[in-house]
Design a protein around this nucleic acid. Structure first.
Length: 216
DNA sequence: ACATTAAGTGATT
DNA sequence: AATCACTTAATGT
């Protein structure tokens, strides 16, 4: 137990320097649980109850919202280390079933904070409140950007933004994913994505391999 | 070597 | 831009 608390403190210092209050750090170390997911694993699914808020320390996560009819999803945003899931707050604060699905894109680790502490920490710790509010603001803007690009932009721009956002979250230019997966995320056909990627490759913007796209 | 799955291509609507 | 029908290429067994 003691060892795990030390580890959490180290992770906090490394990835969440803005959570500077000593007391807060102590609390997190005390109640936080180290979680681990493999690539492709679903962390939270539609309809499940959120019991933890994640502080991501390694890897990246994709957050999608269910869309009408069969299988159509809409990407909301990606999350990487040093971030947390804004949607998980509203879900857990309202004690609502999740309307979102989160999936680990690669091997992912985070510190899980049980939801019951959210409330008290908001009033008790200034840095926690700032952190949560800042996250809200960020992700809200990102969602609006996604909506704009769906409404006003062509597939090519959307693809470019998708790749950029995803690589930013992952902290690497090498994305492990198939054209089919990208197509699903953008609600496009696999062929369309393949062709656009090919064009980008010819322009020297990306490198294509099986199950891998490298941004240049 | 063979089967499976990912990716590329052209034609059609 | 979607869908179809097919080819080509990479990868696992």
């Amino acid at each position: 137990m003691q060892i795990q608390q030390e580890e959490i403190l180290d992770l906090l210092h490394e990835h969440f320097p803005e959570l500077a209050e000593k007391e807060l750090q102590k609390d997190i170390a005390e109640v936080g649980r180290l979680m681990h997911y493999n690539a492709g694993q679903t962390i939270m699914d539609y309809g499940s109850y959120v019991r933890m808020v994640p502080l991501i320390t390694e890897g990246s996560i994709k957050v999608t919202r269910e869309e009408d009819e069969e299988g159509k999803e809409m990407i909301l945003y990606f999350l990487g280390k040093g971030e947390t899931c804004a949607m998980s707050f509203s879900c857990c604060m309202m004690d609502k079933q999740s309307a979102f699905r989160t999936e680990a894109l690669e091997e992912t680790r985070f510190i899980g904070i049980p939801v019951k502490y959210m409330d008290q920490w908001m009033t008790k710790y200034q840095s926690w409140k700032k952190f949560i509010m800042g996250t809200y603001d960020n992700k809200m803007m990102e969602i609006i950007k996604v909506m704009d690009s769906v409404a006003f932009e062509g597939m090519d721009e959307r693809l470019t933004k998708y790749l950029k956002a995803r690589s930013e979250a992952a902290g690497t230019n090498e994305l492990e994913c198939t054209h089919q997966e990208i197509a699903n995320d953008l609600n496009a056909s696999r062929e369309a994505i393949s062709r656009l990627l090919k064009k980008m490759e010819n322009k020297g913007l990306v490198e294509l391999h099986r199950n891998r796209v490298v941004l240049v």
